[in-house]
Amino acid sequence: MNRWIVLWQKEMVAQWRSQSSLPAIILYVLSTTFIVFAAFARIDERTWVVLYWIILVLSAAQSAQNSFRDVEGVSGWYYYSVCRVEEYFFSKVAANFILLGLMAVLTFLGLSLFSGMPIRNLGLFVGVNVSAWLGLSLLFSFLGFLNAKIEGQQGLLPLLSFPLLLPILLEVIKLSSISAGAMTDTEYMSDLYILLAVDALILALTLLLIRYLWQS
């Protein structure tokens, strides 16, 4: 557990100090919201929600790909010798989760500033966000890890992850549309439970499969 926290701290520091990853993501989020503003000016609730999640998913894929750069090569062997794969992997998941939260807040503020803030049920929206960040950070970390293990071609992550994202993305867009008032559904709790169940499924799968990705 202690090693896990140390690894996580190291990961956060590395992200913070890195010249490319964190500023690049912030730049990406802000420039996308500018483009959305320039292209649409004002948008309806449904489009707002869909754009929000697309921006978020693309930047999450990018940051997950960056965070597993050290899995191969000398640093990879170092981690392999000092810690268990679960500690290594879940420190990355935690870092990605926090980064995803940061990106979400930035995207939310950027879109709200330029294109209006349609969310009416803020509690539901925050709940959906947190459970989606959990699922997305787990899924992207797992596939980012897998992607980092492929020598040569490392641009496969979007290809591997986007079809698998669909169960999360469908529920998330539906639930946030409800929270924005673009859709009415009084029984949205069952959708929220499905989202959490998918998160739990991904968590169980990563726990089960992660050690097979590690060894070379």
Binding site: I150, Q153, L156, L164, L201, L205, L209, Y212
Partner: peptide, 28 residues
């Protein structure tokens, strides 16, 4: 994914993990 990994053992290991991951996510 299969076609982009040249090392046989690594390909088998990574694609097997992906296959199980994908199949379970197909259920929802």
């Amino acid at each position: 994914l299969r076609s982009s990994i040249s090392d046989e053992d690594k390909r088998a290991r990574l694609t097997a993990s992906y296959n199980i991951f994908a199949f379970v996510l197909l259920i929802p």
